[in-house]
Amino acid sequence: MHKPDTSPWQAAAACAGLSPSVVFSRRGKEAAPALRACAVCPVSRECETAVAPAESWFDGVCAGRLWRNGRPVRPRRRRGEPVPADAAAQPDPTAALSDATALDAAGAALATLATLAGGDRG
């Protein structure tokens, strides 16, 4: 039986020895070995460029992420599990609001509620 030729980056991929059912799984639990392999893979950039998951509607693991229909799947967290470091490092969009801005917004919301409540009584 003839094996298809692979490019040098494919031969160097950390997932090269894994079952296709693991690499192309749509479920995180089944894809876990491939995701672990991606974490230490020396050719993950080449993989993402070649596979182009978003453009090819890819299902499976590519470049350290699980993809379904060309969209990255967010990993599920169990209750009580800590937030991943990369998610915690993202800036809070409300942190830039000053106290005065927050008070103004709260005051406007209360004024709107008061108007609505007063309008119902008449």
Rank of each mutant, 00 (worst) to 15 (best):
R71C: 01
A63L: 06
V61Y: 04
A102Y: 04
L66S: 05
G122C: 06
R36E: 15
T49Y: 10
R27K: 12
V73P: 06
R71N: 03
P33Q: 01
W9P: 12
S98A: 09
P93G: 03
G17E: 04
A39F: 05
C38D: 13
R36F: 09
R36K: 15
C47S: 02
R68I: 07
T49Q: 12
V73K: 05
E48C: 08
G118C: 02
V83T: 13
A88S: 14
L97Q: 15
G119I: 03
R79M: 12
P20L: 07
H2C: 04
C41A: 07
G80D: 11
R45Y: 12
A89I: 04
L113F: 07
A102W: 07
R68S: 09
N69F: 10
T49V: 12
A117G: 06
R78L: 07
A88L: 13
W57E: 15
E46Q: 15
H2K: 09
A95V: 02
G107F: 01
P53E: 09
W9N: 10
P4G: 11
E30D: 15
V22H: 00
S25W: 01
D99Q: 08
L113V: 06
A95E: 13
L110T: 01
V40H: 12
V83N: 08
G119L: 08
R76Y: 06
S98Y: 07
F58L: 12
D92P: 04
R65G: 01
C47H: 00
R74D: 09
T94M: 14
D92E: 15
R27L: 12
W67R: 05
A50W: 10
D104M: 00
A108T: 08
A32E: 15
R74K: 14
Q90T: 07
A105M: 02
P91Q: 06
A31Q: 09
T6G: 04
T94P: 01
M1A: 10
V43E: 03
S21C: 04
A11E: 15
A102V: 09
A102I: 11
G17S: 08
P4D: 14
A100I: 02
G80M: 05
A12Y: 02
A11Y: 04
H2Q: 14
V40L: 13
A109R: 06
G107P: 01
S56W: 01
S21G: 03
R45K: 14
M1C: 06
S44C: 05
D120A: 15
T6C: 08
D86I: 08
A108C: 10
G80V: 03
W9R: 08
G70K: 02
G118Q: 05
S44H: 07
A106K: 03
A100H: 10
C41Y: 08
P72K: 03
L66A: 10
E81K: 00
G70D: 09
S21Y: 02
W57R: 15
R78H: 07
R77V: 02
P93Q: 04
D92I: 07
A50V: 09
R74E: 14
G17K: 03
L35V: 08
R76H: 13
S98H: 06
G28T: 02
A114T: 01
T101L: 13
P72W: 03
L35R: 00
A111N: 08
V40T: 14
A31R: 05
L110V: 06
N69K: 10
P33R: 00
G122D: 14
A37Q: 01
C15Q: 10
G80R: 04
A63N: 13
K29Y: 11
L18I: 01
V22R: 00
A102P: 00
S19W: 03
A85K: 06
M1V: 12
A32N: 11
T94K: 05
